[in-house]
């Protein structure tokens, strides 16, 4: 590398070449060669609803993970949480794009993220809960990633080729997310009295939100068995709480989603005519 050329070439070759920068380096398009037409056997409205719900889950949790930036307990965790947040943000973008192709509106990913209101979001409430301490965050991530991994594994065989490709890519990412979170749940459950107590508090406050994940899926038993294994290794009890009424899937949210979205949408809504 010469001393100068990296900087000197900065002003060159930027016109109308946005696409080159869209996803950073080393990004493989998971939809390369995939036919985006909706197969005749697939109910487009249902497909769109699935993509929207899964996209909202990913966007909202990615936003929570972004809140950890510069606040993580160690640099390695700073890297890992950002990595997971980026994966989920990538999943949200692909899912929104598919939603726009199938719900009849032709909307862009940004239309879904920035120009819908709280009641239009279809994410599970578990994703929108505040980060709390590191115990809360890794427990939420464990449950979310375990469930999403099981669900995506099934979706990888779904008749819509686009959703199947998105899910297949997601499986690789979610396997790591789950592993990362499980390791921390075990460390914190087993570590010190304080970390054990914090894990118990996290379990108690989050467990009522778990049932919502299973409302429409048949992965409940497998996910709970997986969770039990991790909690056993961590020396933590498996809670059996009464599920909360209502569902984020129907647009019923906690009081935490509106402020999250207000922040996420603040700049975009202040400049609705702008391009970024």
């Amino acid at each position: 590398m010469s001393d100068d050329h990296v900087y000197l070439s900065l002003a060159e070759g930027h016109d109308d070449s946005d696409a080159r920068w869209a996803f950073g380096t080393g990004f493989e398009d998971p939809l390369h060669g995939v036919d985006t037409a909706v197969p005749e056997t697939v109910d487009a409205a249902r497909l769109a609803a699935t993509c929207l719900a899964l996209g909202d889950d990913a966007l909202v949790l990615a936003q929570r993970l972004a809140e950890w930036v510069t606040r993580a307990p160690e640099l390695e965790e700073e890297m890992a949480l950002a990595n997971i947040g980026l994966d989920l943000l990538g999943q949200a973008r692909l899912l929104y794009a598919r939603c726009g192709q199938t719900d009849g509106t032709g909307r862009t990913e940004d239309a879904y993220a920035y120009f819908r209101d709280t009641g239009d979001f279809r994410n599970v409430r578990l994703a929108e809960l505040p980060n709390g301490d590191f115990a809360h965050s890794v427990l939420r991530l464990l449950m979310f990633a375990s469930w999403r991994l099981a669900h995506f594994t099934e979706l990888a065989g779904t008749p819509d080729p686009v959703l199947a490709a998105i899910a297949a890519k997601g499986v690789k990412e979610l396997t790591y997310h789950r592993q990362y979170a499980a390791e921390w749940v075990v460390r914190l459950g087993d570590g010190t009295e304080e970390s054990h107590a914090r894990m118990l508090t996290a379990l108690e406050s989050q467990a009522p939100y778990w049932e919502e994940l299973f409302a429409a899926e048949d992965v409940r038993d497998a996910v709970l068995a997986d969770l039990r294994q991790v909690l056993d290794a961590a020396g933590l009890p498996v809670p059996d709480p009464a599920p909360l009424p209502g569902s984020g899937r129907d647009g019923e949210h906690t009081e935490h989603l509106a402020p999250l979205l207000a922040e996420l949408q603040s700049v975009a809504r202040a400049h609705p005519e702008a391009t970024w």
Binding site: W21, A22, F23, G24, L59, Q63, A66, E67, V69, E78, M79, A82, N83, G85, L86, L89, G90, A92, R93, Y96, E109, D110, A113, Y114, E263, L264, S266, V267, A268, H271, A274, W276
Partner: peptide
Amino acid sequence: ITKAPSLRRKAILFAKVQ
């Protein structure tokens, strides 16, 4: 990162800070 006005800019900034 939490306020980036498009998902593409959000991803770029998130990755940069990481």
